[in-house]
Amino acid sequence: MNDKHMSDRDLVQACLSGKVDAYQKIMERYSGKAMALALNMLRHREDAEDVCQEAFVKVFNNLDRYDPQQDFKNWFYTVLYRRCLDHMRKRKRFYSFMVKFRNEPDLEAALMRQGPARNPGLDPRLLEVLSPREKMTLILWANEGYTGEEIASVLRCSPSTARVNLYKARKKLKAMLEGEDVALQNG
């Protein structure tokens, strides 16, 4: 069978039987989507590339744990989302450390501003009001057309939680688009 017409499950099976090159086909399918998702989450191109690379390695090393009953894309997005969260935590720790180390209170804000500046066209303030979980929910809903159930399978939460997160994300985004300051409402 032509590799292009092979399903994700078939390609995973090929990988598990020792054909590492089959994984290249999987990566070709998901590199663009992964990059867009990571870029939306992290707003920094180099960070997004690092996270995508790590996610692809992680997924390959855990292919034997993949449940064929589950959608491969959703499983991959779960891994990618968790890598993004890890990266965000590390970045936050690094910024906090740098601020303490250099004793410059404004450094954190300056460093945080560097990320968005490298991605013109993306207004960082619009997504900044969303929590990582809300951001991921919004990305999956808007870019992938996911339903509450599908978002829940990626975020490993209940569909009702996913739908509530989506409601909050859409509401905050709308308020931001209309120029309202919802940052204070986050607390």
């Binding site: 990059m35 995508c52 870019n143 985004l173």
Partner: peptide, 25 residues
């Protein structure tokens, strides 16, 4: 009071907008 899908898409990076994606392979 809820953002429409198109509004959300307008503030998100789309796959097709990526000029070049790094070859991770």
């Amino acid at each position: 009071k809820l953002a429409a899908r198109e509004e959300a898409m307008s503030v998100l990076v789309q796959e097709r907008e990526l000029v070049s994606v790094k070859d991770f392979w």
